[in-house]
């Protein structure tokens, strides 16, 4: 069990897919301007990673090594399209919310990275845990970045104004505070991720590469 629980816990901290392996940066920059979008994306990736890792793991002995990347791509794309179609038919409202994330999920390099690095060499159960762990590690960073970007960029959290009304000048805004519009742009997401990396490596010197 000790070994299995590490599969979940490691990606949350010392082997985090975003801050240590620097994967999945593109979607971390793209959709973290709002906390809600970060959470939705995290949950979607959690699902695709869990199921995808198991499917690849079950197929690991029949996938020809020469074309394994294409085979992985087909599996993840098929999965995402099936989920999208089923949602469109049975939960249309939800599918509207998720539709913009579909393209981002397929191209998320964490998913391909875990298929390649883990699921191709391990059994279904361990692959499932690895998928869940990495998706959670990805999700944590997304939520942290989304939290700061939405709070400092729009003065809201999950769409609720927590610092007062910037137009009516109430709350913090009455003493001259202004939203930092720069936080809404992608470069600031990179800087927030950079700060997380900095804090993480200051606390654990073993993570510093030469």
């Amino acid at each position: 069990m000790g070994k299995d629980s590490r599969l979940i816990l490691d990606p949350l901290t010392d082997n985090n897919p975003i801050t240590i392996q620097v994967l999945g940066i593109c979607s971390a920059l793209a959709i973290t301007a709002e906390l809600e979008a970060s959470i939705v994306m995290s949950i979607s990736v959690l699902f695709v990673m869990g199921v995808g890792n198991v499917v690849i793991s079950l197929m690991r002995n029949i996938i020809p090594s020469k074309i394994r990347i294409i085979a992985q791509l087909i599996v993840v794309a098929t999965l995402v399209i099936i989920v999208d179609l089923v949602l469109k038919a049975f939960a249309y409202e939800l599918s509207k919310t998720l539709s913009v994330f579909v393209g981002l999920i397929i191209t998320n390099c964490i998913i391909m990275g875990r298929f390649e690095a883990f699921a191709l060499g391990n059994g279904p159960w361990r692959s499932f845990l690895d998928g869940i762990g990495n998706a959670l590690g990805y999700g944590i960073i997304l939520v942290i970045v989304g939290f700061f970007r939405e709070l400092l960029g729009s003065g809201t959290l999950l769409g609720i104004q927590v610092l007062g009304d910037p137009i009516e000048k109430t709350g913090l805004y009455s003493i001259g505070y202004e939203n930092n519009g720069f936080m809404l742009l992608s470069p600031m997401a990179l800087i927030v991720v950079g700060i997380i990396i900095w804090i993480q490596r200051t606390r654990n010197k073993d993570l510093i590469e030469d």
Binding site: A30, I31, T32, A33, E34, A37, V40, M41, K96, S99, V100, F101, G103, R149, E150, L184
Partner: peptide, 9 residues
């Protein structure tokens, strides 16, 4: 409505 604009922007 939109098909695929950036969430949050």
């Amino acid at each position: 409505d939109h098909k695929g604009e950036t969430p949050g922007l």
